[in-house]
């Protein structure tokens, strides 16, 4: 397994957010975590990508392993630099005071010296032509959807081969939503491992190979996307009947 989360118990202060969840992602897979508001999806991702203290959720017990090695002591920047995992965070968090291009350049901060960045910028602009048109614009002034594209493009520029996305379709018009999911599919076909969090369960399950259903800090269902889509309980709670 590329990434495995084992019996993870996580707290914020005294509030327990995850009650011992386990899931894993294999190389080249698209795995999705679905669940309602407050289920603990974002907390799961933050636990994986680490956050600098004091914002970080506190892992009480359990383990997170990358290629079999615990990463609980790995710093957040090293998760990106050394493990090549990148997070597209909930709420995008792009650097609004900088241009689109500067956002992308900044993401290459810890890239190897011999990386061919020029062709990677080209690739991002091919995926998201809109970003190229707005290259020198302050990213604050981008529309919500364009900011989301920038957040994804920026994560890709870190040189990751594993991308974690937290509700990337939030606030996107349907057309853009499908476009984004097509892009994710394409990235996966090129070898990218993807862990996707979505509230739109139907969309997520159509894209993913496997999925987990999270409910108030516990995993209540798991399996291939097909089996989840046909699971009556999942259907009722997350797929609108």
């Amino acid at each position: 397994m590329l990434l495995s989360v084992e019996n993870l118990i996580v707290k914020y202060g005294n509030i327990q957010a995850l009650h011992g969840i386990s899931f894993d992602v294999d190389e080249g897979e698209i795995v999705t975590l679905i669940g309602a508001n407050g289920a603990g999806k974002t907390t799961s991702l933050y636990s994986i990508t680490r956050l600098p203290p004091p914002e970080a959720p506190r892992v009480i017990s359990g383990d997170i392993k990358y290629k079999g090695q615990s990463i609980l002591k790995t710093s957040p920047d090293s998760v990106v630099k050394d493990l090549k995992m990148a997070l597209v965070p909930e709420g995008r968090h792009i650097f609004g005071n900088m241009t689109v291009m500067e956002n992308l350049i900044l993401a290459t901060y810890s890239r190897e010296k011999d990386a061919d960045l020029e062709s990677e910028y080209k690739r991002i602009f091919k995926l998201f032509p809109r970003l190229e048109e707005r290259k020198d614009q302050r990213s604050e002034s981008l529309s919500g959807g364009e900011q989301q594209m920038l957040a994804v493009g920026r994560a890709l520029m870190t040189g990751c081969n594993f991308i974690l996305l937290d509700e990337p379709s939030m606030g996107l018009a349907p057309v853009l939503k499908y476009e984004l999911f097509r892009t994710l599919k394409q990235l996966n076909e090129e070898g990218m491992t993807i862990l996707l969090i979505e509230q739109n369960a139907s969309l997520a399950l159509h894209l993913a190979h496997r999925g987990y259903v999270l409910d108030t800090g516990e995993i209540v269902a798991q399996g291939s996307s097909e089996s989840l889509m046909n699971d009556p309980k999942v259907k009722k709670a997350y797929l609108g009947g």
């Binding site: 990508t49 680490r50 956050l51 600098p52 914002e55 710093s75 957040p76 920047d77 090293s78 990106v80 630099k81 990148a86 997070l87 965070p89 968090h93 792009i94 650097f95 609004g96 005071n97 900088m98 900044l106 993401a107 901060y109 810890s110 890239r111 920026r154 994560a155 870190t158």
Partner: peptide
């Protein structure tokens, strides 16, 4: 100065 949270996500040691 704009968003401290997202900086380590870029692989930058704060």
């Amino acid at each position: 100065s704009y968003d401290k949270f997202a900086v380590p996500l870029m692989g930058i040691p704060i």
